[in-house]
Design a protein around this nucleic acid. Structure first.
Lengths: 333, 333
DNA sequence: GTGAAAGCGCTAACAC
DNA sequence: GTGTTAGCGCTTTCAC
C-alpha cells in the first residue's frame, strides 16, 4: 500500500491554477483554456490523482451508485443462472456509465432492513428491485422512498410504476400453440405457484391458447416450480388423465421431474407425450430427451432495468416494458 | 418520493443536545448520559433520521464498502452457478457487518480500468479479486494499491499474499484414488487448460494418485474445460488407448461431452469406462448416468474471502486458506 | 458528560 | 476564462 492519495488542491498547486479550474477540467466543463486544461492534466498524471468519491457525493448530493436488490430467496428466481444473467445485463449498461453497482441480497431480516435503509436514505441514486415476494412490505417502502425504483417482474398485489417483465403469458401461449400445431389434442399443464405473478400468467397463457384452439383445459396439476413437484404433478396427471398426449410444464425444473416420471411409467417422449418447459435453464439441454422450452430474455431484463433506472435518475419518464420470450424447440416436443 | 432527509443537526436541535452528543449516541460511544441518549433516540425516531453515508465517509476516511471484482470473462469460472454461489457466501458475511457490497465485473476494457481506479483510489475499503487471468496486470496493481486485497484462487505466475483457494490438487487425487479403489487400472485424464492454475493442479493430482498406486499415467488428452473439448478429448483417448477403463475429467462440462462420446461409441458407463468429473455443477445430476464428481466449496470460498478481507480491514493479519473438496459419488463411477 | 468548532475533499455560485 | 469561498453532513479533537 502506498502513501496517501493526493487531493484536488495539490493538483491545483502543482499545475498553477485554482481548485475551481481543476474541478472544471475534471468534470470537463466548458470555458477552460487549452493551456490550463493541459497543465491540469499533466499534474493529475504526475500525482496519480483520483477524485475522492465521498467528497464529491457530499458536495453534489449524488451517490454515484445504484443498487440491485434481490429481496426474495425464492429458489426459482434466484436460481443460479437467472441471477448471473441478470447481473451480466445490468453490468453491461453500468459499464457505460460512471455509476457503481451495489448488490443487496436481502436474504435475512437483516438484509431486509438494510435494503429498507437504502431505500429511505439515498444511499444509492436508484434501486432495481428483483423478485419481490407477493405483498412484500418492501414494495410500499420503495414507493415512499427517496430514490427512483425499477422493478424486475411484477407481483399480483400491485403493478409497480416502473417495471420490466418477461412476457410469461405470451410465452406460455406460444408454447401451447406449438403443441397444438403438432396435432396434440389432450394437453395438460403443471402450473407453478398460483399465488405468484409468474405462476398465474403462465397458467393464463395456457388457458388462452387452448381456448383459441377450442380444446379442453381441465387437465391441470398445481406445482411449486420445484423438480419434486413436477414429478408429483406428472404422476397425478397420468393417474387422472391417462389419455393426455402433451403437457406444458411451467418451469424446466418441474419438467425435469415430469420427464423422469414419464420414463418410469413407460411413456415415450415425445412419442406418447410431448413436453414443453419454461425458462431454458442449462439443464434443459441435458435432459433426455432434450427439453423444448420457452426462453426468457434474462440478460435483456437486466439491461433494460438498468437503462430505465438511469433514465429515471436523469429525470426522464421512461415507460415500463414487457420483453418477448422465445420458443426453443428441442426433442421433447 | 418524500422530502429531504433530515440531518444530524436537526436531530440535535430537536433533542436539545449538541451535534457532538448526537454523534456519540449514533456510534454508541461511551460517556453519554442515559437522559441524552434517550432524547436523541426519540428525535431520531421522530424525524426518521438516517445518517448520510457520504458525509460520514468523508469525515472518517472509510468507505463502508468492499468490492467483489471479477476480472476474467473466463466461462468456466464465471459460469452461472459458481458466480451465484460465491456471491451468496460473500453476502452471508457482509450481512453481519455494516459494509456494503460493490460488484465490479471487469468484462470490458472499461470495466478493467474502472477496477483499477477502485484499487488505486480507496473507493472501497477492500477488494476481493476473483478469477484473475494468468499474468493479469491487475495482480500487480492490486499489490500496489491503497486497499487490502483478497484473491479467490491463485494463478501460476504469482501467489498472492492473501488468498482463498479450493484444493484442486487434493480433489483430483481423491477422485483418481477412488477410481483406483474401484479396481480400475488403465486410467486416463482429460485436462483443463494447463496454463491455468486449476488446470495444472488437477492434472498434478491425477499424476500423484497414479504414482502412489504404481499405475501408468500416460493416457492424457488436453482440453480447455469446454464441453466440446471434452468430447474431442474422449474421442482421442479412445482412439489412442482403446483399453482404458476409467477417465478423470477435469471439469463436469468436459465430462458431459465425454459421456456423449462414450455413448456414441457404445461403451457403457461405468461398466466399460468409469467417469469422474470436477465441480459438481447442477447438470452433473442430470447426465446419463449421473456424474460422480468433485465438489468445490464455492459458497465457503465466498464466505472465507469476505471474512479474511474484513479482518484485513480491521488491521489483522489473517492467513491464506485452502479449502477441502468433496467427492460426490453418483452413478458414473 | 457535553458543547464548540475545525476540518474531511469536493462542487458551485459568484465575482472579477 | 479564472479565482474565491461558502457550504455538503458528519466526526473528532479540545475545552470545560
Amino acid at each position: 500500500m502506498r502513501n496517501r492519495p493526493s487531493t484536488l488542491e495539490e493538483v491545483a498547486r502543482l499545475s498553477g491554477v485554482s481548485t475551481g479550474t481543476v474541478s472544471r477540467v475534471i468534470n470537463n466543463a466548458p470555458h477552460v483554456s487549452k493551456k490550463s486544461r493541459e497543465a491540469v492534466q499533466r499534474a493529475i498524471e504526475e500525482l496519480g490523482y483520483v477524485p475522492n468519491t465521498a467528497a464529491r457525493s457530499l458536495a453534489t448530493a449524488r451517490r454515484g451508485a445504484v443498487a440491485l436488490a434481490i429481496s426474495s430467496d425464492d429458489p426459482v428466481l434466484f436460481a443460479n443462472q437467472f441471477f448471473a444473467e441478470v447481473i451480466s445485463g445490468v453490468n453491461a449498461v453500468i459499464e457505460e456509465t460512471d455509476l457503481q453497482l451495489m448488490l443487496v441480497l436481502a436474504a435475512s431480516d437483516r438484509g431486509h432492513s438494510r435494503l429498507t435503509r437504502i431505500l429511505q436514505s439515498r444511499a444509492a441514486d436508484g434501486v432495481m428491485l428483483l423478485a419481490l415476494r407477493e405483498n412484500d412490505p418492501l414494495s410500499k417502502i420503495a414507493d415512499e422512498g427517496q430514490v427512483p425504483v425499477v422493478h424486475g417482474g411484477r407481483s399480483l398485489d400491485r403493478t409497480p410504476q416502473y417495471y420490466v417483465d418477461a412476457d410469461n403469458r405470451g410465452g406460455a401461449r406460444q408454447a401451447v400453440e406449438y403443441l397444438v400445431s403438432l396435432g396434440r389434442q389432450r394437453i395438460a399443464t403443471i402450473t407453478g405457484q398460483t399465488d405468484m405473478h409468474v405462476g398465474v400468467n403462465r397458467y393464463l397463457g395456457f388457458r388462452e391458447a387452448l381456448a383459441l384452439a377450442g380444446l379442453a383445459d381441465h387437465r391441470i396439476s398445481h406445482g411449486d416450480f420445484s423438480e419434486a413437484s413436477g414429478a408429483a404433478g406428472m404422476a397425478q396427471l397420468l393417474d387422472e388423465h391417462p389419455d393426455l398426449d402433451a403437457v406444458f410444464v411451467a418451469s424446466d425444473a418441474m419438467a425435469a421431474g415430469a420427464l423422469k416420471v414419464l420414463r418410469e411409467r413407460g411413456r415415450s417422449v415425445p412419442g406418447d407425450v410431448a413436453v414443453v418447459g419454461f425458462n431454458d435453464i442449462v439443464t434443459a439441454q441435458h435432459t433426455h430427451p432434450a427439453l423444448t422450452t420457452v426462453r426468457q430474455p434474462i440478460e435483456a431484463l437486466g439491461r433494460e432495468m438498468t437503462r430505465m433506472l438511469v433514465r429515471l435518475i436523469d429525470g426522464d419518464r421512461p415507460t415500463s416494458l414487457i420483453l418477448p420470450t422465445e420458443l426453443v424447440v428441442r426433442e421433447s416436443a
